[in-house]
Amino acid sequence: MSVANTPHEYTLAELCIAAAAEAFRGNGEVLATGIGLVPRLAASLAKATFEPGLLMTDGEVYLVAEPVPVGPRQGYEPKIEGYMSYERVFDLLYTGRRHAMVGPVQLDRYGQTNISIIGDYAQPKAALLGVRGFPGNTINHANSMFVPNHSTRAFVEGEVDMVGGIGYNPARWPGGKKPEHLELRKIVTDLCVMDFGGPDHQIRVVSLHPGVTFDEVQDKTGFPLAQADKIATTAAPTADALAMIIRLDPHNLRATVFKDNPPGVRAA
């Protein structure tokens, strides 16, 4: 029996990394930017396995021929294949040749995202980062999201408190017409994988992580979700994928993504 066919255990973080990597499948030669540990490992896994054409940086300014493992480098030297200063990222993203996976603090039914503030804009309850590049990213190229805490606090009932990343909300579109390059793709959470494939781009559950029900996801979401015709169980990472995840994250930083680093298959 080959290793690939041996049943194996995996953590929820590893499940999310493998599921999020799928967002980059078929992307070809675009700059894959994963902001945060899981998105970065997801993009790295995609590039290292099934999507070798992706462009990727070392986290700073060099484009690398193979993904750079996260954490202390321990003598590893990035395999440089190009240069991508922050200024150049803007020049590139205006051409659309990029797919970013980001970690919004709030996300609404339209896919609009917020990392600026929570609460009132003038005197917010919490000031966060600022809009960063979200408005420009979302109007220029494909975007996906990772949300580690699927809850009504993250998936809010109304609009997000400050719309940084734009979404499928016709009321905000100039002339009511969808911005040509707006394209939101996947949302991976600790409970499920969603896309924007419902009616009028409604957010839709496409797969549930092992042991999770649709009702639980709906209960923890502040707006109604669509369901795929046949909701799948999120695919377990293959043995090869797990081996690559270990290579890409040699210090097991992924064990810190979720409290107590739970298994990918929920205990009954």
């Binding site: 600026s116 804009y121 809009v131 979200f134 408005p135 420009g136 979302t138 109007i139 220029n140 400050m162 719309v163 940084g164 990343g165 734009i166 909300n169 905000r172 579109w173 100039p174 911005p179 707006l182």
Partner: peptide
């Protein structure tokens, strides 16, 4: 000119 900012709260605020 730029499309960046359209449909976001950058314009609102």
């Amino acid at each position: 000119p730029t499309p960046v900012g359209l449909a976001s709260d950058v314009l609102t605020h």
